[in-house]
Amino acid sequence: MTISASRKDLASAAMFLAIGSYFTLEALNYDIGTPFRMGPGFMPVALGGVLIVLGLIVALTAFRGPDTDEPTPFPWRGLVLILGTIVFFGATIRGLGFIPVVFLSALATAFSSRANNPIAAVIIAVSLCALCLLIFVVGLGLLVPWFGPWLRF
């Protein structure tokens, strides 16, 4: 890239601006009220405005100079597998039941590290599954079927 600015600062500024704008715009739909009796929109609009201003200042400071450290590679594999697993867990815990979901999730998470080979991943998944079943379902009485309704024929 040719611009001599801190990419980290620009990126964080963009995130602050995005978050600030969303909250401000959305809060404008709510009743702002008066300083005496503030409505539900008062604080979010005020804070969103502050965040936008801060975001702009951070963006300005970015032009003091580029980052000194090399950007580290994005852990794509980890990002997709771990975040995907969490969403998968939420989406299927009621339908598939505890044992299949925990086993599959643990397996997928274990694979997000390049250091784990398939055998290790299976071992990790089986032991985690047993451990979690003991702690949460047997020990703490979490109300969740071992095998969910989707698996009953």
Partner: peptide
Amino acid sequence: RILFPAIVMFACI
């Protein structure tokens, strides 16, 4: 590599 799957599972459950 053994630890973090446990962390993720504990977090979800």
